[in-house]
Every structure is written in C-alpha cells, then in structure tokens.
Design a protein around this nucleic acid. Structure first.
Lengths: 206, 206
DNA sequence: GTCTATACCCAGATAGAC
DNA sequence: GTCTATCTGGGTATAGAC
C-alpha cells in the first residue's frame, strides 16, 4: 500500500472517530508515518482528503440503488422473500468495515456539510421511500393489502424504524458490537415489517 | 438582560447552529457586544458555558419524565386520548424555541460528548421505551391487544419512528418550518400509532 | 466588569534542500 | 517524495490598567 492509500485509509479511521474538525493533518501524517508537509504531495488540502472519501462513499452506494427496483420482481414470492431481497445488497455493502466507518462519518458531518446532508436526504431517505411506495402500490394492485391505506405513511412507518436503528448504532453506540448490530438489525426490521404489514394485509393472504 | 444571560443565550444560538467546535469565544463576545476577555468574568471557560447549557436542558427535560406515567391513568379513555396525553407535556416543552435549539445541539454533540450521548441513550430513548412497555403490558391485561405480541418490539416499532422524525428535523432539515414540523409530527405519529395498534389489537375493540 | 495587550498553543499550508 | 524550517492565522485564556 502506497502512502496515498495510507493517507486515505488513516483519514477514514480518524475522521469517522473524531469528525473532520477533530482531526489534524499532523495526526493523519503521524499515523501514516510521514511528516505533515508530505501529505500535500498527495492531496492539495485537508478538505481534498475529505472530499475523496465522500466521493468514494457516494459512488459505492449509488451503484446499489437499483437493487430495490429489482426486488419488485420478486413480490410474488411473498413479503419475507421480497424484503430480504430488497435489503441484501444494501446491507452487504454497508457491512464492509470501510463503509461502516464512512457511514458514521456521514452521520457526523451531515449537520454542517451541505453535500453530505443532501446526499443523506436524497439518496438515503427520499429515494428508498419512493421505492417502497412503488412496491406498496404494487401490493395494492395484487390485492395483498387494503385499497384505502396511505402508501406514503406506510412506507415511512416501515422505513424510518430501520433508519433510526442505523442512526442509533452509528452515532450513539458505534462501534459497539458491529456484527451483533447487523444480526439484530435484520431480525428487528423483519419483525417490524411484519407488524406494519399485519396492519393493512387483506385477511386470508399469507 | 445582563451580560451573563446574553452570553448564555448567544451561545445557545451559535452552538446549535455550528456546534461547539465551530464557534469561538471571540464570536460569542462579538454577538454579545463585549470583548472576549470579558467573557471570563462570567464563565471560567468556553466549556463551562457549554456545561451550563447542557445542565439547563437536562433539568428542563427530566421534569417531564413523569408525564408518561400519568398518562397510563388515562388508558381506559381510548388509545387516541392516551397517546395525546403521553406526548403533550413533552411536545409543549420541546416546542419552546430555546429547547429546540438545545435539542439540535444535543444531536450535534452526542457523537463525541459522553454526557450528552448518555443522556440521549438513557433519558430520551431507553426511559420512554420502558414506559411504553409498561403501557403495552397494561393493554394486554385489559384485553385490548393480543396476549402473545412482543411488547418490546411493539414499543420500539412505535417509538423509533417518532425518534427518526425528530432526528431528521433537528439534524437534517433544521430550522425549516418548525411550526409545520410539529403539526406534521403529531399527525404522522398518530397515524403511525394506529398502524402499530392495528396490527395487534383484538378485533371488536375500538 | 470591561478594556487593551499579550502569552501561548496548535492549526493548515508553503519553500526549498536533499 | 520526504524532509526541516517557517509562515500565517486562529484559537483559549490571563494580567493588569481603568
């Protein structure tokens, strides 16, 4: 691993622990094992390191956005199967150690970084909600759930629960028991999904 | 208002906008209209200002913790009434402008301030969940909901939705449309509560 | 209680030798 | 590409006159 890669990795480590403002260029250089002036041979500024991390994360995450669309093809196989298919690609990607660290970094920086905040709002919250709305509408058409239920409310009731689990883990409990968290996450959101589904399903189905 | 009070208020303003590290003593003094050295006649350090804000918030919030217990007395009057009674004291307090600002400050600082994080985990998340568990158990005893449902899962399914709405508003959207947020919050969480309740209620009740 | 002046520290970043 | 040396600016906090 060359020094540029080392700088990148060490920065992810430190930024995700202490936030961007909580880490100095000296500190990064120290962890890499070079002097701080040498950093500037690889990145033009501290902010440039941060931007490369954010770009990396967005690129990795966006490539998974289509996963949910594909999941809709599996709707006939039952809600459980469909739910797992929808989450699998996302969770597999999120579970990578590097992605977990940057996820925490995103939560930390979102309050004062416009790019981060807009990515979270648009790609992490709004886009999935829209995806779930499409799917709940499909379920309506197939007579799996009641005709008169509010699909947006339903999508939010379903999705925000998982979002809070993520916030709680990455912001308040990190990095306690990462593996346990992901196992619990799947179990908990599945139970939650059933609770939500129960409230609107048409009797006799499933 | 004397200068000590001005320092207190200005600090709440600035800290809640930019975070503790994002604000300098100079900036606070500038807004108050004095020199930074004069700050130290009122507070021994920048951290001391922060601590007084955090103490103020905790004191204000803790005094409302008993509200939920009292709500249980109203359970016979129906879920809607009971839900509103449980939320009213909390929302009224939270809706004060000063409390809204400090709430955002708590969200911002929780990732690297142990006191703030522990308060959020214990008093804002765990304690209410325990309260809802007690209430769902009461509903079981009164045959309002199914005997075999998981009350903790039910409490989390119910409560985390609202917590995410709070996070979303105070962290990602703040201070957009504070009034609209609180109106929406009540409407949304009420619908969500009905969704959750629907999934476990015993038919013929309510 | 507020001021001016200043001490002291650490931050990000640059220049130029090797 | 890395180093030493240094610049510049900002931060928190203190001393002492008024």
């Amino acid at each position: 691993m060359n020094n540029k890669e080392k700088i990148f990795n060490v920065s992810i480590d430190l930024f995700s622990k202490y936030g961007f403002d909580g880490v100095s260029v000296r500190q990064i250089a120290g962890e890499v094992g070079i002097k701080e002036s040498s950093i500037y041979n690889h990145y033009s500024s501290k902010q440039a390191i941060m931007n490369s991390i954010l770009d990396y994360y967005v690129e990795e995450m966006i490539s998974d956005e289509i996963a949910l669309d594909q999941a809709s093809l599996n709707l006939d196989k039952g809600f459980d199967f469909f739910y797992k298919a929808g989450c699998d690609a996302f969770l597999t990607k999120l579970r990578e150690e590097r992605m977990m660290k940057i996820t925490r970094l995103f939560f930390i920086e979102s309050y004062h970084n416009d790019d981060v905040r807009n990515f979270l709002k648009k790609s992490v919250i709004e886009a999935p909600i829209e995806g779930w709305i499409v799917l709940f509408n499909l379920m309506k058409e197939k007579n799996l759930i009641e005709k008169d239920c509010d699909v947006r409310q339903l999508s939010e009731s379903f999705f925000y629960y998982g979002m809070f689990l993520l916030y709680e883990h990455f912001f308040l409990n990190y990095p306690e028991d990462d593996d346990k968290f992901f196992d619990d996450f799947l179990a908990k959101t599945e139970k939650h999904a059933k609770t939500i589904f129960n409230s609107v399903k048409i009797e006799g189905i499933q």
